[in-house]
C-alpha cells in the first residue's frame, strides 16, 4: 500500500497539519480488539462441535481452529492492552461520499442480474463518476455509456464470458 496509508508514529501531529477534521483516537483499536476477541470466541465455540480425528496420530479437524482461536485470543488481548491511535472514520467532509460509494456498489451488484450488465453498469458509472467529482453531465453520460458497451463487447464478445442481459434480453447479441 502506498505511504498515505502507512501508520506513522506521530499520527497526532500529522493529522493536525493535514486533515483537521479527522478524529484520531485509540478507541478504534479497542473496538478492533473486541471484534478479534469475539471472533476467537465464535471460532472456539464452533470448533467444539467438530468431530474427533479418525486416525490415531492425526491431530484432527479441530486442531488448527483451536490454534487460531488461541492466537486470536492472545492477539486480541495484546491489542486491547496496547491500542495505537488511528483515524478509522473518514473526515466529516467526505463521510457521505464514502458511505454513498459503498452503498452504490452493493446496489450495483444486486441489480446486475435484474437489469442486466449494460443498464446497471451504465447507471453505476454515471452515479460513481458524479461522486468522484465529475461535473459535466453530457461527458459523464457519454463516457459511462461507451465504457459499459465496450466492456460488454470485450467480455461477452471477445472473452466469451456470460453476462446477464436483463432489460436488453434479445436486443443485444
Amino acid at each position: 500500500m502506498s505511504a498515505q496509508h502507512a501508520e506513522t508514529p506521530n499520527t497526532e501531529t500529522e493529522h493536525s497539519q493535514t486533515q483537521p477534521s479527522t478524529q484520531v483516537s485509540r478507541t478504534a483499536d479497542r473496538v478492533f480488539a473486541v471484534v478479534v476477541l469475539l471472533l476467537a470466541a465464535g471460532l472456539g465455540l464452533a470448533a467444539l462441535t467438530f468431530p474427533a480425528a479418525t486416525q490415531d496420530s492425526d491431530p484432527g479437524t479441530a486442531a488448527l481452529p483451536w490454534l487460531i482461536t488461541a492466537a486470536l485470543a492472545v492477539l486480541g488481548v495484546l491489542l486491547l492492552l496496547r491500542p495505537q491511535p488511528s483515524a478509522v472514520l473518514p473526515p466529516a467532509s467526505v463521510r457521505r461520499t464514502a458511505a454513498a460509494i459503498l452503498i452504490l456498489t452493493v446496489v450495483y451488484a444486486g441489480l446486475l442480474d435484474v437489469l442486466g450488465f449494460i443498464p446497471s453498469t451504465f447507471a453505476f458509472l454515471c452515479c460513481a463518476s458524479r461522486l468522484m467529482g465529475g461535473r459535466r453531465w453530457l461527458q459523464i453520460l457519454l463516457v459511462s455509456a461507451l465504457t459499459a458497451a465496450a466492456l460488454h463487447l470485450l467480455f461477452a464478445g471477445l472473452l466469451d464470458v456470460h453476462l446477464p442481459a436483463g432489460l436488453l434480453e434479445g436486443v443485444i447479441p
Binding site: I101, F117, L125, S129, M132, G134, T147, V161
Partner: peptide, 13 residues
C-alpha cells in the same frame, strides 16, 4: 473521475 468507477465495475465483473 472515470478510472476508479471503472475499476469497481471490473472488479464486480
Amino acid at each position: 473521475t472515470y478510472l476508479w468507477p471503472t475499476g469497481i465495475v471490473l472488479a464486480v465483473l
